[in-house]
Amino acid sequence: LVRYRTISKIPQITLNFVDLKGDPFLASPTSDREIIAPKIKERTHNVTEKVTQVLSLGADVLPEYKLQAPRIHRWTILHYSPFKAVWDWLILLLVIYTAVFTPYSAAFLLKETEEGPPATECGYACQPLAVVDLIVDIMFIVDILINFRTTYVNANEEVVSHPGRIAVHYFKGWFLIDMVAAIPFDLLIFGSGSEELIGLLKTARLLRLVRVARKLDRYSEYGAAVLFLLMCTFALIAHWLACIWYAIGNMEQPHMDSRIGWLHNLGDQIGKPYNSSGLGGPSIKDKYVTALYFTFSSLTSVGFGNVSPNTNSEKIFSICVMLIGSLMYASIFGNVSAIIQRLYSGTARYHTQMLRVREFIRFHQIPNPLRQRLEEYFQHAWSYTNGIDMNAVLKGFPECLQADICLHLNRSLLQHCKPFRGATKGCLRALAMKFKTTHAPPGDTLVHAGDLLTALYFISRGSIEILRGDVVVAILGKNDIFGEPLNLYARPGKSNGDVRALTYCDLHKIHR
Rank of each mutant, 00 (worst) to 15 (best):
S220Y: 10
M231Q: 07
A440K: 03
V100A: 01
E121P: 14
L446A: 02
V95Q: 01
E221G: 13
Y80S: 08
A348P: 08
E375I: 15
W245C: 01
I339S: 04
A381E: 10
L145M: 15
A238K: 01
A449P: 02
L206N: 01
T98N: 14
A449H: 12
R349F: 07
I270W: 03
P70G: 14
A224K: 01
Q415T: 08
T352H: 13
W240F: 03
S412C: 07
D404G: 02
Q269P: 01
I146K: 01
A130M: 05
Q353N: 03
H162Y: 05
A449E: 10
L343Q: 01
S192I: 06
I198T: 12
K287S: 08
M179V: 11
P82R: 05
G261M: 01
C400M: 09
S383R: 07
P282C: 01
T113K: 13
R205W: 01
Y384W: 08
I366C: 01
A449D: 13
K425G: 11
Y170L: 01
A225V: 09
Y329T: 15
T102I: 08
L428Y: 04
M231E: 11
P282Y: 01
S337N: 15
L292F: 01
R165Y: 07
G305Y: 01
M433D: 01
T424A: 10
Q269S: 05
H380I: 03
R349H: 05
A213T: 13
T290K: 01
I284R: 05
A167I: 05
I177E: 01
L230D: 04
R349Q: 04
A330V: 02
K172S: 04
Q269I: 01
D268I: 14
L207M: 13
L413P: 09
L209P: 03
D186R: 13
V160I: 14
G267K: 01
A155N: 11
F420N: 01
A204Y: 11
L134E: 01
W382S: 04
I77Y: 01
W89P: 01
S297Q: 01
L355Q: 13
P70M: 06
L94F: 04
G443Q: 03
V168L: 14
I339E: 03
L200T: 05
K285Y: 14
A99S: 03
L200Y: 05
E157D: 12
C243M: 01
G443L: 03
E157F: 14
A213L: 04
K66I: 07
E157R: 14
G164S: 10
A238G: 03
G346R: 07
I72V: 12
D217E: 09
A106I: 11
Q269F: 01
F234Q: 13
S220W: 12
V131N: 01
R211D: 08
L129K: 06
Y329S: 08
V95A: 01
H162K: 10
R259W: 01
R371L: 02
G261R: 01
Y80T: 07
V142G: 05
L236I: 05
I144W: 01
I166M: 13
S298G: 14
F296S: 01
E114V: 13
G280E: 01
S331A: 11
L93K: 01
V302H: 08
V212Y: 12
P128Q: 03
R373T: 10
D133R: 01
L428S: 04
G281F: 01
F101L: 15
M231I: 09
S326V: 07
L229A: 05
A348F: 14
P369Y: 01
T295R: 01
Q365W: 01
Q353Y: 03
A182L: 13
P442R: 06
H169F: 05
L327E: 02
F185L: 09
N154T: 11
T76F: 04
W240A: 01
R165T: 08
I366M: 04
D444L: 07
H162N: 04
Q127V: 06
L370M: 04
I72S: 06
G303R: 01
V210F: 04
D217C: 12
A403G: 10
F108H: 01
L230C: 09
Y80W: 04
K285H: 04
I146Q: 01
E376V: 07
D88V: 01
M433F: 08
E64T: 04
M256T: 14
P163V: 06
Q372F: 11
F360C: 02
A235T: 14
Y219W: 05
A338L: 13
L129H: 03
F101Y: 14
V357G: 01
P70K: 07
D257L: 04
L227C: 04
L197G: 03
P103Y: 01
P103D: 01
A381T: 13
H73Y: 10
S301Q: 10
G334C: 03
I339G: 03
T300F: 04
P117W: 06
I248D: 01
N386A: 07
G280D: 03
F420V: 02
A125H: 04
S81K: 14
D286K: 01
N306D: 01
R205E: 09
K436G: 09
S326A: 07
S81H: 05
L414T: 02
L110M: 15
G116Y: 07
F296L: 13
N306C: 03
I72F: 12
H408I: 01
Q365P: 01
I91F: 01
R429G: 03
A330P: 13
Y97Q: 01
W382K: 05
A130S: 03
N310M: 01
H448A: 09
I177K: 01
F234P: 01
A238N: 01
V210Q: 13
E375W: 08
H448R: 10
N154V: 11
E196Y: 11
H264S: 10
A181C: 03
Y344E: 05
T233F: 13
C232Q: 01
G281R: 01
I96P: 01
G199M: 08
K202M: 01
H162V: 11
Y222E: 04
W382T: 07
I177H: 01
C232D: 01
A204C: 06
F140V: 01
R218A: 08
I388T: 06
S81P: 01
G116M: 08
A330Y: 04
L78I: 06
G346C: 13
A238F: 03
S81G: 12
I138P: 01
S301W: 01
A167M: 08
Y222N: 01
F228A: 09
K272T: 01
D217P: 04
P398H: 03
Y246R: 01
E252C: 01
T150D: 14
F83W: 10
R362C: 02
R208Y: 04
L279D: 11
F228H: 01
Q269R: 03
L109R: 14
T311K: 01
P82A: 12
G278C: 01
L394S: 01
W382Q: 05
H408V: 03
A181G: 14
I189Q: 11
K418I: 05
L323W: 11
L216F: 09
V95R: 03
G334I: 03
G173P: 01
L201N: 01
A247P: 01
A155W: 09
V180F: 08
I91P: 01
W87V: 01
Y222W: 08
M179I: 11
L227E: 01
A224W: 12
Y350W: 09
S326G: 04
M231K: 01
R74Y: 05
P82C: 15
D143G: 01
L145C: 08
L200K: 03
A338S: 06
I244A: 05
P103L: 01
R165N: 05
V180D: 01
K84C: 06
N410H: 13
I361N: 01
N386Q: 14
N250K: 14
W245S: 01
A348S: 06
F101D: 01
N265W: 01
G123S: 05
F333Q: 05
N265D: 12
F435C: 05
T98A: 01
R214S: 05
L431C: 01
C400R: 07
I138S: 03
L176G: 12
G346E: 11
V212P: 10
Y377R: 05
L431N: 01
D178S: 01
